[in-house]
Each structure stands twice: as structure tokens, then as C-alpha cells.
Simulated assay, not measured.
Amino acid sequence: MCGRYNLIDDPFTQGLLDELGISLRIQTRYNLAPTEQVPVIRQVEEKNILQDMRWWLIPHWAQIPDTRYSMFNAKAETLATSKAFSGPLKHQRCIIPASSFIEWRTEEGHKQPYSIQPIDGVFAFAGLWDQWGHGRETILSCTLVTTAAAPGMEQIHPRQPVMLPPDLWARWLDPVIDGHRLMPLLSPSLPCAVQVVPIDPVINNSRHKQAPLLIGPALFQLDAN
């Protein structure tokens, strides 16, 4: 799963936006958590746009928005059969940019948070979006697609976000393509080298919105695979 991430306004993030034809800047945001508004890239009328969405998908058919079910992550393995996700998979896909994400590992009886961050790069997480309601009550929401951990990443957590390499961004965003044809893109992989660094547990509080404080050297690094 992935329940927290950071997004930094830096040349890597700007490069992602430039590559997708978006002439905007992203505001730096730390410790983004489910149900918060997060920046999402989707395609509308053949143009990629950047807009905030609620990070916790609300299916368009839901009677009311609620959080009874964990809808901020969507397992790649069951997207095609999920009542909530199979519809968005077809034509409502998005990219969620991230500069790093946070996972926890139990060590000596407590959960130690780690920042998983690309070395000289930015993550483009595969996501899905949906629209609930009408008029003033309209809510755009998204979910982050996860898959099994790539080799080496299981040291931290058995699952990870689906990370799209640049050559697949356009295909994933294209709503003309039926997403069922893109399922092979959701296999475990690391499109860029990453490092895993321990950070101060103060980040455990989702109200803490400061930059993660590194408390030691990288636990390990992994090359792209």
C-alpha cells in the first residue's frame, strides 16, 4: 500500500509537467495523506491538465461519500474485476506525480518510517479517477494503483505504487485506449534508481506538513529494473 507521499517543486517535477505539455508549477506539499486534495494529471479533450482531486476514490454510483472502505489504493491484480475500479480503468486513468513516498517497517517494537525517493528523478504513479455528484456537489477523486514490490523493495513493504516510465505516460493518460489493454504495464518494476532513507517518526502524524527529517544514511539503494 501507499498511504503518504511528498511532492516537491523542483526541476524533476517540472520536467514531468513539461513533457506532458502542462505549463504550470506544482506547489511543494509534504506528508500528503488519504482524503486530502492532491495534484493529479489527466487528459481532457486530447489535452493533459493538472488539477486537485480528493485522494480517496468515490465511485460515481456511491450513494454518499464515505470512508468505510479503503479506496485510496487500488490493487493492480484486481482492477479489472473490481466494481469500483473496473469502470475508471477503461477510460479514466491519471498520473499522480510524487517526489517520494513513505512506508513503515516494524523495528524493535515500533514502526520506523522510511522515505523511498528516486535518485535524480520523480515518480509518476499510475492512478484512476472518478466523478461523483453533480453541480456544486461534484467531487473529483482518485486512487493510486499498487502492485507487488519490485525485487529488493520487499525489504520495506510487500507492495508498492505502480511507477510508470516516461515512455508509457502518454498511453496511460489516453482515454481512447481501453485500460484493460494496459494491464501488462502494471507489473512490479522500478523505472528509476531509488534510495530508502530512515526519517523522523514525527511524520507519522498526518498533520505534520514539514519536510521529512532524515535521521540516518540510506538503508539501501536499488537500481532501475
Rank of each mutant, 00 (worst) to 15 (best):
D10E: 15
P11Y: 11
Q14C: 06
L17Y: 03
E19Q: 10
G21L: 12
G21H: 08
L24F: 07
L24K: 13
Q27K: 14
Q27D: 08
T28E: 03
R29T: 02
R29L: 06
N31A: 05
L32D: 03
L32I: 08
L32Q: 09
E36P: 01
Q37I: 04
Q37H: 05
V38H: 01
V40H: 00
V40I: 15
I41W: 03
I41E: 03
N48I: 05
L57K: 08
H60Y: 14
W61I: 10
I64W: 13
P65N: 13
P65F: 12
D66S: 14
R68Y: 14
R68G: 14
S70G: 09
K75M: 15
K75C: 13
T78K: 12
F85H: 09
S86T: 11
L89W: 08
L89Q: 10
Q92R: 15
R93V: 09
C94D: 04
C94F: 05
I95D: 03
I96C: 11
A98H: 04
S100K: 02
S100R: 00
W104D: 03
W104Y: 10
R105T: 02
T106G: 02
E108R: 08
E108W: 00
K111I: 02
I116S: 02
I116H: 01
D120I: 01
D120Y: 04
D120V: 02
G121L: 08
G121C: 07
E137A: 14
L140K: 11
L140A: 07
C142M: 06
T146D: 03
T147P: 08
A148L: 10
A148P: 00
P151E: 05
H157S: 01
H157M: 02
P158I: 00
P161F: 00
V162H: 04
V162F: 05
V162P: 05
L164R: 00
D167Q: 09
D167T: 00
D167I: 01
L168Q: 12
L168E: 10
L168Y: 04
L168C: 08
W169C: 02
A170T: 09
W172H: 10
L173I: 06
L173C: 07
P175Q: 07
P175V: 13
D178E: 12
R181D: 15
R181Y: 13
M183T: 15
M183V: 15
P184K: 09
S187G: 11
P188N: 10
C192E: 11
V194F: 11
V194M: 13
P198V: 13
I199R: 06
I199V: 15
P201Q: 06
N204G: 13
N205W: 00
S206T: 08
S206F: 01
S206G: 04
H208P: 01
L213W: 00
L213N: 03
I215F: 00
I215S: 02
P217S: 08
P217W: 07
P217E: 13
P217H: 05
A218Y: 04
A218P: 11
L219D: 04
Q221V: 05
Q221I: 03
D223L: 09
N225E: 15
N225C: 15
